[in-house]
Structure formats: structure tokens, C-alpha cells
Design a protein around this nucleic acid. Structure first.
Length: 270
DNA sequence: GACCCTTTGAAGAGG
DNA sequence: CCTCTTCAAAGGGTC
């Protein structure tokens, strides 16, 4: 029942008409979080579409889900099952979608109305780890427990943007090619490769990101990116201040030279 | 153990 | 409207 609802939301999105011009130009899509025009929380009709979904990366059988839900830390989103991130599959509908592995389909406690829900990897405690067995709560005051409860409220992660989806697919490839492991270096390479992609290639990822955002919006109607603001502590703001001599990232560089962030290449950073 | 680094894009905040 | 900030992922490095 619950799973059916999830599939229905997904199925709805898979048939959601793209905005005019989508796919022709990989520019950021129009804002989708128009809360004023959000549809009512109706449950769309079920579709047998999901019955054909299968995951290339088998996950534990649902039988042990409840057990793992208790003892295993909630996982971070893993799109491998959803997007089947292998070359050649991007840009198509996710034929290999797995309801069990798709981050936006793996709902959990964060989804109302689904008490026996499967853990959603996009929903994680602030610490990134699942809470341990509770100890003697009677030792705590109501105020303390309330504060703690608020602090440990699970976090719904932001949906991935086009570049993040691209990174997720290509990271392993770059690691294999360059024998690098440091993410900062890998991401620099991926950033350059992203700019080297054709419009059509980038458009595939923009389209996937658009669907991801829509699905996220369907699953968490009241969610806002603001909800996750301030959950990370910053050691120092000074390190984030760019120097006058450092050209910085291409993005910063484009900003400095007044170039279009979406289309103009930043020469000095090439 | 938590944050930094590094990338782009989306979204929120503030002027 | 424009600019700035934050956070999504990732994992080695740093504190």
C-alpha cells in the first residue's frame, strides 16, 4: 500500500510534461518550488510501471528491513539503483528503477502516514548516524529532551542538481582513470569535464535533476532547503574569503569578471 | 569526530 | 532584481 503510493508519485513524475524548451537548452529549469501552486496531496492512480523495475545493484531483501532499520545507521542517498548510472543509460527514463534503492522512493520515518516505513536514505539524523538505543530518559528534564529531540530530528537532504548527478555517475570512472581518491581533486576534474560536455549531454542531467526535484517536492511537500541551513558548523569564515590574487573557482572567476555563470567559460581558470 | 577542500546548481536571505 | 550564502556528494586531509 505504502509502496504503491510511492510508485504512484514516481509514475506521475515520469509522465510529467517537461517545461517548454526542456531538453533543448540545459539551462536551469524554472523554479519548481512554487508552494502556492502546489497540487493538493492527492494520491494518483496506481500504475503497474514499477513492477518492471529492477535494480542492477541488488539490495537486501525486504524481509530484513525492519531488523536493519533498528540497528543500521540510516544511509546517505545512493542513486545507483535509480539512475542506473552507466554510460548510455542517462537521459532515458530509469527503466531499472528500484523502489528499494531509489532515495526518493525509499521512504522512511520522515514521511507522514507511513509508520512502518522503510528507511529513506535521504532522511538522516543530523549526525549522520542512527540514534542508539535510548537510555534512562527519566533522568532528563522535559525541556532537555525536547531540545534534544529537536536537534536529532532527521534531516531530509536536498535533491541532487544536474552536476551532482553527473558527479555521482562519473566519479568512479575518474578515480579509475586518474587513480585519484581525493574528492577535491576529482571534483575539479569533473567540473572541467562538465563544461566540456555538449548541450545535449548536459541536458540529460538537467532533466534528471528536474525530475528528482519534482519527486522530492511530491514526497516532502513542506520541505524547504532552509530546513537544513545551519546544521553544519563552520570553523572559520576567513577561509571562504577569496584573496585578490587567487582567481578561485571558475564560478567565482566568472562572477568576478561579470561573465554568465551558465554559459561563459572562465578563461583564467581553465 | 567533525569540518575542510573542491566542483556546479538550486534555493533562500538580504540589500 | 541582484548578490551572497548554504547545501547537496565524496573521501582524503586537517584540526
Amino acid at each position: 500500500m505504502y509502496k504503491d503510493t510511492v510508485y504512484s508519485a514516481f509514475n506521475l513524475l515520469m509522465h510529467y510534461p517537461p517545461p517548454s524548451g526542456a531538453g533543448q537548452h540545459p539551462q536551469p529549469q524554472p523554479p519548481l518550488h512554487n508552494k502556492a501552486s502546489q497540487p493538493a496531496h492527492s494520491v494518483p492512480q496506481l500504475s503497474p510501471l514499477y513492477e518492471h523495475f529492477s535494480s542492477p545493484h541488488p539490495t537486501p531483501a525486504p524481509a530484513d528491513i525492519s531488523q536493519k532499520q533498528v540497528h543500521r545507521p540510516l544511509q546517505t542517498p545512493d542513486l545507483s539503483g535509480f539512475y542506473s548510472l552507466t554510460s548510455g543509460s542517462m537521459g532515458q527514463l530509469p527503466h531499472t528503477v528500484s523502489w528499494f534503492t531509489h532515495p526518493s522512493l525509499m521512504l522512511g520515518s520522515g514521511v507522514p502516514g507511513h509508520p512502518a516505513a522503510i528507511p529513506h536514505p535521504a532522511i538522516v539524523p543530523p549526525s549522520g548516524k542512527q540514534e542508539l538505543q535510548p537510555y534512562d530518559r527519566s533522568l532528563k528534564t522535559q525541556a532537555e529532551s525536547k531540545v534534544e529531540k529537536e536537534a536529532k530530528k532527521p534531516t531530509i537532504k536536498k535533491p541532487l542538481n544536474a552536476f551532482m548527478l553527473y558527479m555521482k555517475e562519473m566519479r568512479a570512472k575518474v578515480i579509475a582513470e586518474c587513480t585519484l581518491k581525493e574528492s577535491a581533486a576529482i571534483n575539479q576534474i569533473l567540473g572541467r569535464r562538465w563544461h566540456a560536455l555538449s548541450r545535449e549531454e548536459q541536458a540529460k542531467y538537467y532533466e534528471l535533476a528536474r525530475k528528482e526535484r519534482q519527486l522530492h517536492m511530491q514526497l516532502y511537500p513542506g520541505w524547504s532547503a532552509r530546513d537544513n541551513y545551519g546544521k553544519k558548523k563552520r570553523r572559520s569564515r576567513e577561509k571562504h574569503q577569496e584573496s585578490n590574487t587567487d582567481p578561485g573557482s571558475p564560478k567565482k572567476c566568472r562572477a568576478r569578471f561579470g561573465l554568465n555563470q551558465q554559459t561563459d567559460w572562465c578563461g583564467p581558470c581553465r
